[in-house]
Nucleic acid binder design. Structure first.
Lengths: 143, 143
DNA sequence: ATCTATAATGAGAATCGTTCTTATAAAGGA
DNA sequence: TCCTTTATAAGAACGATTCTCATTATAGAT
């Protein structure tokens, strides 16, 4: 099933419409290879969509679980498609330029990480919903 | 060596003074068991220290590597003592109340995680400086 | 196809966390 | 002590995000 269909269905389940504006936001996110901030998306999409509408679309998409926020450096929130749409991955966060790159990890490692997450959560009576290995450092451009 | 002495030394190395205000911020952080936001610290410390001074102290402590920022939910930065002072740990982040709890992981697991981090970073020509497993979910209070 | 009720949008004001500016106070060295 | 430098207080300014409200679009009923 296509991405758009999946999202259409999901929004329908939540009784909200998959409007043109929301489609534009989704396709901008789908086209990018890492989390994007509202300002970046505004640049991607063009000035026709007001920032307030962009933020509202992002809020709806977040509430319905289509996008998830990533809180990186400089008090600026970046969004990306949720993992049920984009797949599970981890992050390389550059401390210099603030860029965030998605990375996949080999299945056998992922299995180990997941069992570690479950074990640690159990000890703290914590119900894990999601996890990510956040690796901070310097990206190849900033080295 | 005591925490205060270590920090005194570190600030001295950076040619900045370990003033009363900065000591107050450090001891508030040392007394807490997870990252604290500026507003929370302001509450801990009391209204005598203006927010602007608090932020400036945090900036100096961050520049000198005494505290590190943690960018959690709701575009709000939380600070904690750096790992060379507080030890390496990971985070349980509650999606409901936003609280962040520090957790340690067994050494053998930590070794595996570290080697995974090095391996992934190498593949992306990324220089890792720090890493943390961020586990999002619901804390025992919010379940 | 039209009407109507409801949901979404646009425009801009308002808010919140954070940073900057400037004048004053404290600290260390001559 | 005096002087130079560094730190602080107070509040203005700033940037990201949210809110308000009038207008427009949409789905469903007629």
């Amino acid at each position: 099933m296509t991405l758009d269909r999946q999202i259409e269905q999901r929004l329908g389940d939540h009784d909200v419409r998959y409007t043109r504006g929301r489609r534009v936001v989704v396709s901008a996110l789908a086209a990018s290879d890492g989390p994007r901030s509202a300002a970046e998306l505004h640049g991607d999409i063009g000035p026709d969509m007001p920032l307030s509408s962009l933020y509202r679309s992002l809020a709806v998409l977040e509430e319905t679980g289509v996008v998830i926020p990533h809180h990186g450096a400089r008090s600026l929130t970046r969004y990306e498609l949720a993992e049920w749409l984009a797949g599970h991955h981890h992050h390389l966060v550059c401390v210099d330029c603030g860029s965030v790159e998605d990375i996949d990890i080999p299945k056998e490692h992922e299995a180990r990480v997941r069992s570690l997450v479950d074990q640690l959560s159990g000890l703290a009576s914590f119900t894990p919903l999601n996890h990510a290995l956040e690796i901070e450092g310097r990206c190849s451009k900033c080295t």
